[in-house]
């Protein structure tokens, strides 16, 4: 048995907003975060921004990771950020993965997306970043 760590595990929501049905990437990231000792709430495909934010609040997560390949990121991500703000949960950081052009990535970072990973990002890098941006527990 693994030794129980003193610090409670990081809770992270992984979801796929929008309509594309390709969730291999999201599942692989979920697994890597699990192997790094995190509790990953996997919400799955076709999640609306409202569903994502409600799940994040109910599950009291420290981090949200969204995977998207449909190209709708410039619509859906700002909507998630706004909803988080309006629910007074802007402290929950958001990171993203998928097919996101550099120019869009710059804009999204400005809007508040903490990290964006494209194809070829290593799992080590994603885990390291997730750990460093997760909301610290008070």
């Amino acid at each position: 048995m693994a030794r129980e760590s003193r610090r409670p595990p990081i809770r992270v929501l992984i979801a796929k907003p929008g309509l594309d049905g390709h969730d291999r990437g999201a599942k692989i990231v979920a697994r890597a975060l699990r192997d790094a000792g995190m509790e990953v709430i996997y919400a799955g495909l076709r999640q609306t921004p409202e569903e994502i934010v409600e799940s994040a609040l109910e599950e009291d997560v420290d981090l949200i990771g969204l995977s998207i390949l449909s190209g709708a990121h410039m619509v859906l991500f700002p909507r998630v950020l706004n909803l988080l703000r309006s629910r007074k949960a802007a402290r929950i950081p958001l990171f993203a993965g998928g097919i996101i052009p550099d120019e869009d990535a710059r804009k999204l970072r400005k809007l508040g997306v903490k990290a964006i990973f494209g194809p070829g990002a290593s799992l080590e890098e994603i885990v390291r970043t997730a750990r460093s941006i997760a909301r610290p527990r008070t």
């Binding site: 693994a2 129980e4 760590s5 595990p9 979920a30 697994r31 975060l33 699990r34 192997d35 790094a36 000792g37 995190m38 509790e39 990953v40 709430i41 996997y42 919400a43 799955g44 799940s55």
Partner: peptide
């Protein structure tokens, strides 16, 4: 082993 978990009941 890792203490981690994938919680999939919401799906």
């Amino acid at each position: 082993f890792s203490g981690g978990s994938v919680l999939g009941d919401r799906i």
